[in-house]
Write a protein that binds this DNA or RNA. Structure first.
Lengths: 151, 151
DNA sequence: ATTATTTATATCGTTCACGATGCAAATATA
DNA sequence: TATATTTGCATCGTGAACGATATAAATAAT
């Protein structure tokens, strides 16, 4: 018999993994319309918050490695969403800036967050319960983040 | 100025995406010790629950596509964790069975769920709050699952 | 001023994840 | 029984993720 701790239905990580994949799939048709993937959409959100950032800052904000972000940014540059240029002050840095096409996507995608958000609502996920969901996920992220960086 | 709905800190999906990646990273050292990846560990849990399943049932249980699971299973076969054989009743099916090596991993990994589980605990994530976290994640998964299959 | 170390980014190799498509076995229909 | 459709799995191409490693610029140490 399987040990109970191994039952999939007792696994938090499997739920997170599945929920994350399914939401990404839910985004897909709306983002694909603009030629974007979900990670690319995350990069846009980082740059909409603050334009002209070095690769490292973008990676840190998304908690990704630079070796994940670099090719992602290159693809987005090829698509004309942003530009990559050597930093003048520090020649090691690559400064990433939005193009007009990249900035304009904020208008074109304006309805996406609301569409996704409302599609998730159900009995256990409501405007009243979402703050506690955020708090628990932030707790998990904070907990694991420390573990990583302390080593 | 950025529209507030685009702020990363207001995004549920980004939290799920990050939490999922960080937990997978937390599993990594323990699984790598046995030559496993996290998705491969999920496959093992499916087969520990019920051995000798066709590819399709494993994919459905993990909510993955067969074109993701097939190469995953092939790698696990190469590593000697399982066998793949044509179904006798239905020759289209590939029946996946654990080897002794695959079954024995349940003992070797016995402490993993507890190690991961306890490493996540924090102020907002406690044995008392985890059921509501499960309920919300299950709600999201159920909601999106329906959306997919209804189309 | 040299040399050593750190930092910022990139390259490489492997493993997912998935949309699109292909193929053969099984089943349904004519 | 012949043909059409469905089903189960696989192949292909692209885009992440990430560990390991490389490279060049910046900074620290000698």
């Amino acid at each position: 018999m399987i040990k109970p701790q191994f039952k999939l239905d007792n696994q938090l990580c499997f739920r997170l993994y599945t929920a994350s994949r399914l939401i990404t799939q839910a985004y897909h048709p709306m983002l694909a319309e603009q030629g974007l993937t979900y990670p690319q959409y995350l990069v846009l959100m980082v740059l909409w918050e603050k334009d002209a950032q070095p690769v490292n800052d973008i990676a840190k904000r998304l908690r990704l490695e630079t070796n994940t972000v670099t090719p992602l940014l290159k693809r987005m540059e090829t698509e004309g969403f942003l530009t990559r240029s050597r930093g003048r002050e520090d020649a090691r840095q690559i400064i990433v800036k939005l193009t007009k096409k990249g900035r304009d996507l904020q208008e074109k995608l304006a309805d996406v967050p609301e569409a996704i958000g409302s599609s998730l609502l159900c009995e256990s996920v409501t405007p009243a319960t979402i703050p506690s969901l955020y708090a628990m996920l932030d707790g998990i992220i904070h907990q694991l983040q420390n573990k990583q960086t302390n080593q």
